[in-house]
Structure formats: structure tokens, C-alpha cells
């Protein structure tokens, strides 16, 4: 299947991919932060600082997405990755009905 990729398209795609990856890293950081908070090893002050940092990160990512008009691209990359992980997990959990692709 051939796809037409013009210059603009490519830039969007690359940026979208990078931002999606940055988002995923951000999510991983957030999960770590949550774990530490739940573990009770953080003071309220530290929790506040962590929260602010993550918030700032959210803001930066949102800014880039808005400025570059990447909402759709990022969404499709992430949906694609989610689908991939879904399929993968499905195969791990139900090894019986692995489908030929």
C-alpha cells in the first residue's frame, strides 16, 4: 500500500511520534511519583513540588501540541501503540488463539 508523504506530513509525523514518546515518559514519571506518594515516603512539601514539576511538564507538552497542531497525530500514534500492546497482551494471556497475521 503506497502512502503519499509530503514534506509537511513527514514533519507532523515525526513531531507527533516524539511528543507521543515524551508523553509516555511523562506518564511513567507520574506513575513513579504516585508510587512514592502512596508509599508514604514523601512529605506534603515534596508531594507539592513533584506535582508542580509534572504540571509544568504537562503544560510544555500541551503548548507544543497546540503550537504545532499535533493533536490528531499524537492521538493516532498513541492509539496505535495501545493497540499494539493490547494485541501483545492478548496473545500472552490467550496463547491458544494466536492469530496468523
Amino acid at each position: 500500500m503506497a502512502i503519499n508523504l509530503d514534506e509537511d506530513n513527514l514533519k507532523q509525523g515525526v513531531l507527533g511520534l516524539v511528543i507521543a514518546l515524551v508523553q509516555i515518559i511523562r506518564d511513567a514519571l507520574r506513575i513513579q511519583a504516585m508510587k512514592r506518594m502512596e508509599g508514604g515516603g514523601l512529605t506534603e512539601d515534596e508531594i507539592d513540588r513533584l506535582g508542580r514539576t509534572l504540571m509544568d511538564m504537562d503544560e510544555v507538552i500541551e503548548d507544543i501540541i497546540r503550537e504545532q497542531g499535533l493533536t490528531e497525530t499524537v492521538r493516532s500514534v498513541r492509539n496505535g501503540l495501545d493497540g499494539l500492546v493490547d494485541d501483545f497482551l492478548d496473545q500472552m494471556i490467550h496463547p491458544g488463539n494466536v492469530r496468523k497475521r
Binding site: M34, I47, D48, G51, R52
Partner: peptide, 10 residues
């Protein structure tokens, strides 16, 4: 603000 963000996630 920051703590509220964390607890909202929770």
C-alpha cells in the same frame, strides 16, 4: 497547587 495535582491523579 502541586499537591492538588498529585491527589487529583490519585
Amino acid at each position: 497547587e502541586g499537591a492538588a495535582y498529585m491527589y487529583r491523579q490519585k
